[in-house]
Design a protein around this nucleic acid. Structure first.
Lengths: 143, 143
DNA sequence: CTTTGTGCAAATTCTTTGCACCAAA
DNA sequence: TTTGGTGCAAAGAATTTGCACAAAG
């Protein structure tokens, strides 16, 4: 995974009209360098060691701000935790029902993301999700 | 909405290898006659008046059993509450971001539900979700 | 009788809120 | 000095768990 510099991330936040505090930059930097659709807890746990004063509230605040500004996408693929994706381009997701990891599926036809026209509705966004078993869990299980 | 009789629902449950108690039959009957993707609370609130001893725990137990037996589908389209759909055929959903109602989109090409083949993964199910504004909220808002 | 289902209360987990303190312009 | 950001502790909401009682075969 490519590691964006903090100053790159700083600029990136400005592009979304977000004031880049130390915490916000750290959270976005984590999202950009770990495109693993982390949960709030994943982010907090990862950053906590190097930022001991960081609070989970700030992670929540920060992600909600990013959502409002359109800088991240929230995935509802996992019924337990919200997951966040800094890649706001159109791509499908696959959740492994054994380990709960979420993978990107970039090969899936982008045509799927064309929004259908339905009388009377304003349709604004699409989310395409799959559930299955990932390679690791498949081999880990048996043959 | 067509109202299945309780004895029809009773038979329906047997078809999924589910022992039909009074409570289970009532919950499934509600799901079959209200295809509105209700939450646990919706179901509990609706049945409670005519079944005063019903508990929310039983609704949870029952829905989890239905899920295991494949008799209902759980939707993750709403990040706050789990929603349940007794229609296990392939169809897309649309959530109104103003009122949070969930609608069926049967017109959407069923081709969307063909499962992609990805090296190393076993892909088992697809969920296609849209977010937008429903007709009621559109006109309720303005113009 | 024996097994399974139900339902109360308590526990757990995820997320939001209220508020005091800190930091930046 | 004024505005906005952070973080603790508490509140809130959704779901699960433990256990005693009830129901069904």
């Amino acid at each position: 995974m490519e590691q964006p510099t903090l100053s790159h991330t700083h600029q990136y936040l400005l592009g979304f009209d977000i004031k880049p505090s130390v915490q916000r930059t750290a959270v976005m930097n984590y999202l950009l360098s770990h495109m693993t659709h982390p949960t709030v807890d994943d982010i907090y746990t990862a950053l906590s060691p190097t930022m001991p004063t960081l609070s989970k509230t700030t992670v929540y605040n920060t992600l909600n701000l990013f959502l409002e500004k359109g800088a991240v996408r929230m995935l509802t693929i996992d019924e337990r935790n919200a997951r966040y994706d800094a890649d706001i381009s159109h791509h499908a997701h696959l959740r492994c029902r054994m380990c709960d990891r979420v993978y990107d599926l970039r090969d899936v036809q982008p045509a799927l993301f064309s929004l259908p026209r339905v009388e009377g509705f304003d349709i604004e966004a699409a989310e395409i999700s799959y559930v299955g078993i990932c390679p690791e869990c498949k081999t880990g299980k048996k043959g």
